[in-house]
Design a binder for these strands. Sequence first.
DNA 1: GTAGTGTGTCACCCGCGGCTGAGATATATG
DNA 2: CATATATCTCAGCCGCGGGTGACACACTAC
Lengths: 112, 112
Amino acid sequence: MPADSSTLPEIRLDLAPPDIETPLAAALLLADRNRAGILAILRDGPHCVCELAAALDERSNNVSNHLARLRDAGLVRASRMALDTRRVYYERDEAACTAALAQLRTLLEPTR
Amino acid sequence: MPADSSTLPEIRLDLAPPDIETPLAAALLLADRNRAGILAILRDGPHCVCELAAALDERSNNVSNHLARLRDAGLVRASRMALDTRRVYYERDEAACTAALAQLRTLLEPTR
DNA sequence: GTAGTGTGTCACCCGCGGCTGAGATATATG
DNA sequence: CATATATCTCAGCCGCGGGTGACACACTAC
């Protein structure tokens, strides 16, 4: 027990647990070598799964798994192109990526 | 083998693997409930380990472990304050947090 | 000195998530 | 139709990282 509690900082044991569910979900999506690589590669336009797999030196089914995660989160879109309907081309959803970045800002940007 | 390769998009199997080490490291740091919570709580100023542990409903040694990770990455600083030298107060390094956010921008921001 | 509190360190356990392999589906060609 | 390529799905395995427990260390009060 402190001798002089008025000069000591008050200990706050009743701080509210912060709501970090959404930014945490965004961080978890980026916290994987292959998913981060996919998003980086797709910055320069759409690519098909086999191109991504070759660039990442991973198997296509593994890349497809990660693409499904990103697709479920809305960060990428899939589409078959007219002249090459066998392949599935993926492209970034820039609006969703910006939204995810905004979530991460709530963790890393000062409140001010 | 395509019958008419001139009308089909060229498949790029020689894409360079992107360098994502630094943004990946930043994402891995944020991709944990307790570390994300610590950064969120510290937005409103320094707090000691026991306060963080209480807010996160975690044991102090566990919180201390995560603080060490954030400290090694430079995102937070530790200091003992004059009037309360028993406790260790942690505060965000806003410059480092901004730098980490800049790394994540390389994944989520359009290149333009 | 001893006792008590706050924090740090580390080995260990264990669950979660990434990778794999097998199979299914889709599209094209012969 | 059969064959080939590209992608998708999912159960299972396994390594990595977070939580725990025990202990050491730092500081205060007595």
